[in-house]
Amino acid sequence: MEGLTGSINVLGYGLAALGPALAVGMIFAAYINGVARQPESRNLLQPIAILGFALAEALALFGLVLAFIN
């Protein structure tokens, strides 16, 4: 039964990683859209985009850690 539990954990991580992956795509799409519309806003939007990227990736790493905890 332990093998089945491990497989479910990995499947759960794979599904949990979809959310942060989509979030990163939406964050950078909004950043590129904002800079394309108003190039002078680059210095304001870039730190916000990088912070959003870091937080979204932290969720994926947190999910990875939880997948390995029994």
Rank of each mutant, 00 (worst) to 15 (best):
V35Y: 09
L11M: 11
S41W: 03
L44S: 03
I69A: 12
A29N: 07
A23I: 08
I69Q: 12
L61Q: 09
G6C: 09
R37D: 05
Y31F: 14
P47M: 01
G12A: 12
P39A: 02
L4P: 00
F62R: 08
G12W: 08
G12Q: 04
A58D: 00
G25M: 08
F68Y: 15
G14V: 06
L18G: 06
I48W: 06
E40Q: 11
P20M: 14
V65T: 12
F68I: 10
L4I: 12
L18E: 07
E2K: 12
A56Y: 03
F53K: 07
L18M: 12
V10T: 05
G52K: 00
N9L: 07
L64P: 02
L15W: 10
L61N: 11
L4R: 11
L22A: 11
A60L: 03
N9I: 03
T5E: 14
A67E: 08
M1G: 13
A23D: 05
E40D: 10
I48Q: 06
L51C: 06
L59K: 09
A17I: 01
E2V: 08
L15H: 09
G52Y: 02
G19Q: 03
A30C: 04
I32Q: 12
P39C: 03
A23W: 09
L22M: 13
M1F: 13
A23V: 12
P39W: 07
Y13L: 15
E40N: 08
G6I: 10
N70G: 15
A60W: 06
L45R: 00
I8R: 14
L11V: 11
G12Y: 07
L66E: 07
A30D: 14
F53Q: 13
I32M: 14
P47W: 07
S41N: 06
I27W: 06
A30H: 13
P39D: 04
N43D: 14
N33P: 01
I27R: 04
Y31S: 01
A16E: 13
R42K: 15
G12L: 10
R37W: 05
L61M: 15
Q38F: 03
N70F: 14
F28N: 14
A30K: 15
L44M: 05
A49T: 01
I48N: 00
I8P: 01
T5R: 15
L55F: 13
N70S: 13
L59D: 04
A54L: 13
A49M: 01
I50Y: 11
I32K: 15
L64C: 07
V24F: 04
V24A: 04
I69K: 14
V10E: 02
V24G: 00
G25D: 04
S41T: 08
G63L: 07
A16N: 11
